[in-house]
Structures are given as C-alpha cells and as structure tokens.
C-alpha cells in the first residue's frame, strides 16, 4: 500500500510572468526516490520552489504532504516547510553560528522546547550523516561535502515526509558527490521519500531510480536502460 506524498495535476509553473513548465502531471509515493533532471534553465529550480512555497502555484492542482498548493496561504508556508526537508545546492547554513546552533535553531523554530530531547535529536541526525564529531565547528570550517551533509542532517531533523534536494551535488566534486549521494540513498532505504533535482548524469547511472526530465516546458518520465 503506497501513500501519495506529492501529486500534481495539469500544473503550470511560472517564474514571475513567464511560463516555465506546463501541464505537469506527477505522483510521488512514500518511500520513492525520484530524480528530476534537465538542463540549467529548464525549470527544475522553479519547479522545486513551487513545491516548497517560494513560488505560487496559479494553474492546475497540486497537493504536497497535507497541503493544497493552490490554496496555500502565506501563513501556512512555515508549517508546510516543517513537513519537508529542503537541501540546497549552496547548503544555506547559518554562517554566524556553529553546526550545533544551526540545528538547535531549526528545532527551536519548529517548536521544540526540551533541551535534552533537542540534544538527543541533533546527535541522532548528525550520526545518520556521519558528522557526529563536528557539531562544535562553524560552517566555514567544514568542506563543501561536510557542509552538505550537515544540510541533509538539518533536513532530517523533523522527520520530514518528503525531502526536496535541489542539486545537492551541484557544488561538489565527483568523489564528494558520491559520498553525499550515499547518505541520501541510506536515508531513502530507511523509508524517507526523496525528490532530487540534478544535472549530474553520472549519479543517475550509478544509482538508477525513477527519473523525470524537464525539457521544452514539459516534464516527462524517462525510462533508463539497464546497464
């Protein structure tokens, strides 16, 4: 029995006034690992932004976790994002505080109160990405790959129903990309749903999974040949 966490029907994605993608139909079930590929400028990022409420969905239907993207109110956006884990190409860690404080901020912002529980949760997620010993460091003291692992740990904090990764390996070298990818694969095996935008075809070949392609204002599924 599979549960739908993301569903789009005839959705059109706009970046400002210009149409980026039209007639998007998509369904992601719990436990899936889905790639979203396409050239730069093909609308991957706009697509992701629409999913986490940074762009408005004005045409078509869209349901993500328990939220309706068409009727999503400004006030509901923080609560939508608490159910999602978002990983960015440029990590987007808070540069003015340590890793532990970065993660504590997220927990506090999302309503955690008990200090011991917060500490425990932070240790758990850092352990999952293999960064348990780096909590006291500042983001600028870590390498790109390490920062991205922290970003993934941050995305995991509130046990999200869906992880959106927008080119998580875009700033990393091939070796580090694979390390980060391993982390994402592990998380997926533990039952987390992941939608990952990428243009790194090497990763697709190494870790084949359901793949969607953005091209020519359309999103369609591509079938990978088994290698």
């Amino acid at each position: 029995m599979s549960q739908t966490v993301l569903e789009l029907k005839d959705a059109s994605i706009f970046q400002g006034e210009s149409l980026v993608l039209s007639n998007v139909n998509l369904q992601v079930n719990k436990g899936d690992f889905v790639y979203l590929i396409g050239k730069t400028g093909s609308g991957k990022s706009s697509f992701m932004k629409t999913l986490y409420g940074d762009l408005k969905l004005t045409q078509g239907e869209g349901h993500i976790v328990d939220f309706n993207l068409r009727t999503l109110k400004e006030k509901e956006i923080p609560f939508l994002r608490r159910k999602l884990g978002i990983v960015f190409q440029d990590f987007k860690l808070l540069t003015d505080r340590t890793i532990n404080d970065n993660l504590t901020f997220v927990l506090k912002a999302t309503g955690w109160k008990d200090k011991d529980k917060m500490k425990e949760r932070i240790e758990t997620v850092l352990d999952k990405v293999g960064m348990k010993t780096k909590g006291f460091k500042f983001p600028h003291e870590l390498s790109g790959g390490e920062q991205q692992r922290i970003a993934i740990a941050r995305a995991l904090l509130n046990e999200p129903e869906l992880i959106l990764a927008d080119e998580p390996t875009g700033n990393l070298d091939p070796q580090t990309s694979i390390e980060v990818m391993e982390v994402l694969q592990d998380i997926n095996k533990n039952g987390n749903t992941i939608l990952m935008a990428t243009h790194d075809y090497a990763l697709l070949l190494k870790y084949p999974s359901k793949t969607l392609k953005c091209d020519d204002n359309k999103v369609f599924e591509v079938v990978q040949r088994k290698s």
Binding site: Y52, I77, P78, R81, I86, K92, L94, F105, A109, T110
Partner: peptide, 12 residues
Amino acid sequence: FTIKTMQMVGAT
C-alpha cells in the same frame, strides 16, 4: 540571506 534561510527551514 540568513533571514531567507531561516524561512526555508520552517521558522515563522
């Protein structure tokens, strides 16, 4: 950008 990042992780 810090403010934006904070919004991205679900802070009100």
